[in-house]
Amino acid sequence: MRYLRWISLPLWITALYLALVWVPDERSLGVSYRIFYIHLGMAWTALLALSANFVVSLFVLFKRNRREQLDHYAQATAEVGLLMTTATLASGMLWAKVAWGAYWTWDPRLTTTAILWFLYAGYLLLREAIDQPQKRIVYSAVYGLIVFIDVPIVYLSVRWWSSIHPVVFTNTGINISPQMLVAVIFFFFATLFFGLDLITLRAKQQALRQQLERLREQRLGELGY
């Protein structure tokens, strides 16, 4: 779906202009807070991609006749979700260094995101380690379901835990002005369409790869290997 690229490209250019030039500096954080736009966009897209992975995994299990096509999307959503989670963590850590004085704090959202990262890194590890295609499809779907249910429990436990432990750095809240809100929305849609583009591209690539393997096997069979 190439049109996604032609939607996301102008959105990116506009969003970058809005976030880097158009929007004024924040009162207490100054220029550094501008990373917040990309951070938020990536974080939301990551969550959406991983939620999509959950839905696709459900379909993989129950729509038996369309498993293979669906699995391409399961893999693509997990990979893009993990990529966006990595970007969220990286941009968040850079921002935290400036805003809170340390790369890492045990803030509930930060900790949950880190655990989320490990959970979906495990998803890709599991896929990688299973050779039989049918088994890989079903096992990763089951893992995807089990793990996604874990996410709210992780968030709840981490929030309770950090509410008991002393908070070293307090969260400097940002009061969003209408101007900032516009930039946030543009950045969110820019990353969202970028993510969708990546997902469809990756799923299509996997489908082509599979088709190529089939053709190769077929040809080898014809040649009598």
């Binding site: 490990f118 495990g122 380690a129 299973i130 709840l156 436990s157």
Partner: peptide, 25 residues
């Protein structure tokens, strides 16, 4: 899940530890 992989139990810590983090907490 991990028993059916090439890595067998080697994969287990990577899958199980993040998953049980709320339990550990």
């Amino acid at each position: 899940l991990s028993a059916q992989t090439r890595l067998r139990e080697l994969l287990l810590p990577a899958l199980l530890l993040p998953f049980t983090s709320p339990l550990l907490l």
